[in-house]
Nucleic acid binder design. Structure first.
Length: 792
RNA sequence: GGACGGUUAGCUCAGCGGCAGAGCAUUGCGCUUACAUCGCAAGGGUCGCAGGUUCAAAUCCUGCACCGUCCACCA
């Protein structure tokens, strides 16, 4: 052995040894040393890393903690399965990919759906392998034969089954509801995907004159005057004495001259602004709810492209939001409706990815009726069927669950699992065809009029039998879907465009069916929408186990523990609990351990833009995987923030070297070792053996209660300051210059025993170096340390 | 507007009712045949502030201050 430990010469070799042993696979685990069979299944489903990027330190921490648990339980004699996977990470990945396109001067909207999907697919495929190899470098003892990807066909099938079950039981519905729309990414987002930022803004006070009495008016305050074009009411608090007389009367909406009612609603606060609120159901979540309660009309004045719609009327139609706001304020002022404006600080919802202001918008989406699912999850936590290791998360969880709102699970992005819903293409028409506005369609194709369009179509072999001038729908064109496909393939437009510009939406969508395939070969159309990634990820624990190997689900579900970062408590953990109970009737895991978020040494969040991201693999190259793992776990006590500094890794690199040299000395001293030759222990022997036992018990207790850092520190201190500083110094003399053969043999036994057990205790934390040493240990009992037996 | 967490050695953090701890950094002495990526030793803290409970409090309770985080339909 060399005087210095070189991880590079050891780690790959050892990982290969493990791989070839087959011991990562629970079906190949050997019986225990005394012939006892393993009986207790222990399973962890790995939170699948996003397939769009290389691993970061958070992954390294996750891998370390989970590998510690798995290796520990394997040594304890359990049938251990750590199931790895990769996540397509829908929106996240598409955002990353769009940025990549932007750098290349391209836009997602240049590509049709199939092409874009394929491009992302190829991109992700490369990264999946990178991430896998990185997990191996970290020593992850997961069963690669059961590796799953969230877009595996069998996983998708299960996601569809769950969706259908939810639909059939009335827990998923299609609704025209107010959603969070990101104008940049052109998709709806769930409430969780909206972040709030404080902004310096203005509050405008506007007069709404009473109908029948132009001199009287009610005063409203708003931060978004442009939405007034879509106002359909003014609301006041039912207790508000100021407005009691006005309730039930009507006001004339300025600029628009629409008569709208004054009504009462509890959502209005007495103290705020003037106490009277303009109600715009189409563009504000609260207003939408008020609108629902009072059956108000929803008037859409802002489009998905962030511009005022034609409904907004001249001169505002077509203006960007900010432009419209300016103009409306000017017009109000000119016509004497503006009372005042004052600076105002409030928080504004923005897209958590791009920071663009979220536009609340009425849109038709799929929602999960979440309350019934949440109730079961709340109960499970209360009854302890699922336990948070750290109680503080229990409160946070329950609070969130108590206030949960229906979950929008449809997204207007391509990268994901298509929502398995088929809409009838054209109700009342025998043909499968879609309506378009004649002018818009011609403009899109670069044509002037219908005559040109006719000619254009004939060029493709389509005649009047296939292209029907809309019968009874003036100014519209009905296009045969085969022809649409042809035009799409020629690049004239893409599916988004079709979706956004077809004029028969409401008509054609009045009939739909759930299913992977259309109910009939023709006459059905699938929207390009996909599921929120978390809708499928929420099913991950059972979807994986139901599709790996026969019997896996029965054997390993519910799984033992879910270990993940606290930042995805709501996104993922909560959804897994809800959907796990819903789909299987059982909890997906019994315990939840949340690790902290790794910050840089100055406690700053690591991000690419700050340039403070630490690449775990570079750290491994420099110091070895064991050192990184030990450094991470040594300091993993906090469950919120974990500052990471290279000095911590260096300290553990030194520890690895210490282990190496202690072993080097021990192995040299054990060349003529005979386990059975020991006789009488000295007092020092008994002391160290007792301390070994106590340390083993403490580590066991700490690992059982997820006190990883305590366990790691105990192992560290015992090895360094008891075994190295005392035990080795003690036996050194007795072996080198023995007083008797018996005492030498006893000293050797103590050395062998303490070293051997220390290796076992350290193995979950530092698997490579301990395994490497174990392979040279005399009188070893097992083919590998990873399938040894825990010393207590 | 709610809820939660933190405040301990120069730095990063453990400890959470019973003599103040670790790693890094600092200082001194040691290249003794496992290890200089080391060993031995040393310095350094009225454990945020103010009360209270207790034989005993960094540790429990109350209030305050300062940081930080999460949630929320602030027009």
């Amino acid at each position: 052995m060399e005087a210095q430990y070189d991880p590079k010469k050891v780690e790959d070799k050892i990982y290969q040894l493990w791989s070839e042993s087959g011991f990562f696979n629970p079906d190949n685990l050997p019986d225990l040393a005394n012939g006892k069979k393993r009986t207790k299944p222990y399973c962890i489903i790995m939170p699948p890393p996003n397939a769009n990027e290389a691993l970061h330190l958070g992954h390294a921490l996750m891998t370390t903690l989970e590998d510690i648990l798995i290796r520990y339980r394997r040594l304890r004699g359990d049938i251990t399965l750590w199931l790895p996977g990769a996540d397509h990470a829908g929106f996240e990945t598409q955002v990353v990919f769009e940025k990549k396109l932007e750098k290349e001067g391209k836009s997602r909207f240049q590509f049709d759906r199939e092409t874009l999907y394929q491009m992302i697919w190829d991109y992700v495929q490369q990264n999946k392998d990178v991430a896998q190899n990185q997990l191996k470098r970290l020593g992850a003892s997961c069963d690669w034969s059961r590796n799953k990807f969230t877009l595996d066909p069998d996983i998708i099938k299960i996601v569809y089954q769950t969706f259908e079950k939810l639909y059939n039981e009335g827990l998923v519905y299609r609704g025209l509801r107010i959603i969070n729309w990101c104008p940049k990414h052109q998709t709806g987002l769930s409430d969780l995907e909206v972040k709030y930022e404080d902004r310096e803004d203005k509050l405008w006070y506007i007069k709404y004159p009473l109908v029948g009495d132009k001199d009287k008016f009610i005063e409203v305050a708003t931060t978004r005057p442009e939405t007034m074009l879509g106002d359909t009411a003014v609301a006041v608090n039912p207790e508000d004495a100021r407005y009691k007389k006005l309730v039930g009367q009507k006001v004339l909406l300025p600029l628009v001259n629409r008569e709208i009612p004054i009504l009462v609603d509890d959502a209005v606060e007495l103290e705020f602004g003037t106490g009277a609120v303009k109600v715009t159901p189409a563009h504000d979540a609260t207003d939408f709810e008020i609108g629902q309660r009072h059956k108000l009309e929803t008037i859409v004045v802002i489009g998905q492209d962030d511009k005022m719609t034609t409904v907004a009327g001249t001169p505002y139609a077509g203006l960007k939001i900010v432009e419209a706001r300016q103009k409306i304020v000017q017009d109000l002022e000119a016509q004497g409706f503006l009372i005042k404006e004052e600076p105002y600080r409030h928080s504004v919802g923005v897209c958590y990815k791009c920071g663009r202001v979220i536009e609340p918008m009425v849109s038709e989406q799929w929602f999960v009726r979440i309350k019934p699912l949440a109730e079961r999850a709340v109960e499970a936590i209360k009854k302890g069927e699922v336990k948070f290791v750290s109680e503080k998360y229990e409160k946070i969880f329950q609070h969130w669950m108590a206030n949960i709102r229906d979950w929008n699970i449809s997204r207007q992005i391509v990268w994901g699992i298509k929502i398995p819903v088929w809409y009838k293409t054209s109700v009342g028409s025998k043909m499968e065809a879609v309506h378009f506005n004649e002018k818009i369609l011609c403009a899109k194709l670069g044509l002037k009029n219908e005559a040109e369009f006719d000619q254009f179509s004939n060029g493709f072999g389509f005649d009047d039998r296939n292209i029907q001038w809309a019968s009874g729908r003036k100014g519209e064109i009905l296009l045969y879907v085969g022809y649409i496909d042809l035009l799409k393939s020629k690049g004239y437009f893409d599916e988004y465009w079709v979706e956004q510009n077809r004029t028969d939406k409401n008509l054609s969508e009045s009939e739909f069916r759930i299913g992977e395939k259309p109910p009939e070969p023709i006459g059905w159309y699938q929207k390009p929408d996909t599921f929120d990634t978390w809708f499928s990820s929420g099913q991950w624990p059972f979807a994986t186990l139901q599709t790996t190997k026969a019997g896996d689900f029965e054997r390993f579900y519910p799984t033992a523990v879910m270990e993940t970062g606290w930042d995805i408590l709501f996104f993922w953990v909560a959804r897994m609990i809800m959907m796990g109970f819903y789909a299987t009737g059982q909890e997906p895991f019994r315990q939840i351990y949340m690790h902290g978020l790794i910050r840089d040494k100055d406690k700053k969040k690591m991000s690419k833009s700050k340039g403070n991201v630490v690449n775990p693999l570079a750290v491994v190259d420099e110091n070895g995987a064991d050192a990184l793992r030990m450094a991470l776990v040594f300091n993993a006590a906090s469950d919120s923030d974990l500052p990471f500094g290279e000095d911590k890794v260096v300290a553990q690199k030194r520890f690895a070297n210490k282990i190496w040299n202690a072993a080097r000395f021990s192995l040299l001293s054990l060349e003529d070792f005979n386990e059975k030759a020991k006789t009488k222990f000295t007092a020092a022997d008994e002391a160290i053996l007792k301390e070994l036992e106590e340390t083993a018990q403490k580590i066991t207790k700490d690992l059982d209660s997820f006190n990883f850092h305590e366990a790691a520190q105990s192992a560290y201190h015992f090895f360094w300051h008891s075994f190295c500083d005392k035990c080795i110094e003690d036996v050194k003399e007795r072996i080198k210059e023995p007083v008797s053969a018996e005492d030498k043999a006893t000293a050797q036994y103590v050395l062998w025993k303490v070293l051997g057990d220390s290796l076992k205790l350290l193995h979950p934390f530092m698997p490579f170096i301990t395994e490497e040493i174990y392979q040279s240990l005399p009188e070893k009992k097992r083919p590998a340390l990873m399938v040894e037996e825990w010393p207590c």
